[in-house]
Structures are given as C-alpha cells and as structure tokens.
C-alpha cells in the first residue's frame, strides 16, 4: 500500500513490444521481486510507488503497464494521453523490439500532445547477456547512440538482478520534476499527467504557488 502522503503524482507509461519485460520491470520496481512466469498483460495494468527526488519532494509514480501485444495496440493508444513520461522498453536480446522503438516513441508523442513527454530508453534482460544465456543483439553503443540523438537517457536493466531498474525510473522522475521547477510542466485541469498529492495539507496551494509564476514567466 502506497503511503498516501506525497507532493506530486506523476503518471508514467511503459510502452514497447510484447515480452520485452515491461511488467517484470515494474514488478521489480514496485515489489522488489522477479516473477519467472507472468501472463501477458491484458490491456493495461497499474503499479504505484513512492519515490523521492533530489530535494526530498515525495513523488507518487502511477505506472501504466501497457500490453505490448499487437492486438491491444488500438486500445493502449487510449491510455497515452494522461501520461507525463514514457519509458521506451526493448529487449537487448531481441533486435526487432529495438527497431520498433521509434514507432512506440512516435505514437507516444502523438497521443500525449500537446504535452512533451519525458522519455527514457530502457534495455531489458541484461542478466541474460551477462549469463550468456542469450546473445546480445543490440550493442550498448547502438542503443546509447539512438538515445543520444533523441536527447534521452539510456539505461540497461535486469528485472532479475534489479540492475539499473531504480536508475531508470529515477531519471525520468527527476526530469519531470525538473521540468515542473523550470515551469514547463504544471498541474492542469483535465490532464492527469501531473497531480498534486491530496493528503498533505496545503499541498495544492504550494504546488500552485510554485507552478503559477513559472507559467506566467513562460508565456
């Protein structure tokens, strides 16, 4: 159960081909566990975790785990809109999953508009490569190069060992928070990408105070 006291709620969405390990990544991030076997996600599933950004502000991450299966593609499109960040997940032992990343990225951009989402490129199943259980199909340099051209971070992870999992989510969270501080993002009616925590007294006022001047200076 997530501690009800938090300053902001960010909605992040995980997208990527099926069986790249989105659900496992989230399971590790929220439960610290790795499930050897997991059913394919039906439509969308939800996870939540509290995380603290650098200045100690508590962020509740509402994580939308979308189904990667092609048949759900039409449905999952519906869920993009209210996300502030998107993790582009691929399997480093599966080249096609990496090659679909631009598609996923474009889709997310289109559906999250007018908001500019925070992206992160996440390569999963690092443990398989390290164990030599499966050959690596995407060299780290290649993925890093792709991430660099889009000015997004690239993190290699393993939901089995937990390697890089925290870093991946933390980098996105910090970036979203930094954009709030810079005034690019703000709490808006009719958009649930960023919400203020409802349990802390005065939380809304505080956030509005912080967001309002930034917005005016921006416009």
């Amino acid at each position: 159960m997530v501690d009800p006291i938090f300053d902001y709620q960010f909605r992040l969405i995980l997208i990527g081909d099926s069986t790249v390990g989105k659900s496992s990544l989230l399971k590790y991030f929220t439960d610290g566990k790795f499930a050897e076997l997991s059913d394919p996600t039906v439509g969308v599933d939800f996870f939540a975790r509290l995380i603290e950004v650098n200045d100690g502000v508590r962020i509740k991450l509402q994580l939308w785990d979308t189904a990667g299966q092609e048949k759900f593609r039409s449905i999952t499109k519906s869920y993009y809109r209210n996300s502030v960040g998107a993790l582009l997940v691929f399997d480093i032992t599966n080249r096609s999953s990496f090659e679909h990343i631009p598609r996923w990225m474009a889709e997310a951009k289109r559906h999250i508009e007018p908001h500019r989402p925070v992206f992160a490129l996440v390569g999963c199943k690092l443990d398989l490569v390290q164990n030599n259980a499966k050959p690596r199909e995407i060299p780290e340099e290649e993925a890093a190069q792709f991430a660099q051209t889009h000015s997004i971070p690239y993190i290699e992870t393993s939901a089995r060992t937990g390697h890089g999992v925290e870093v991946a989510f933390r980098s996105v969270t910090q970036e979203v928070y930094d954009r709030i501080l810079s005034g690019e993002y703000s709490v808006e009616d009719g958009w649930d990408g960023i919400k203020t925590g409802f349990s802390r007294p005065g939380g809304i006022d505080f956030s509005l105070e912080e967001a309002e001047p930034a917005r005016t200076s921006c416009c």
Binding site: M1, V2, F46, A48, Q62, W64, I75, S78, Y79, R81
Partner: peptide, 14 residues
C-alpha cells in the same frame, strides 16, 4: 490503493 480508481479512469478513457 487497490487500483480501482485508476482502472475506472482507464476504463473511462477507453
């Protein structure tokens, strides 16, 4: 907390 709200929200979106 039991994800009812977010499911309802998602369902609403759908």
């Amino acid at each position: 907390d039991y994800k009812g709200m977010v499911h309802l929200e998602a369902f609403e979106m759908l």
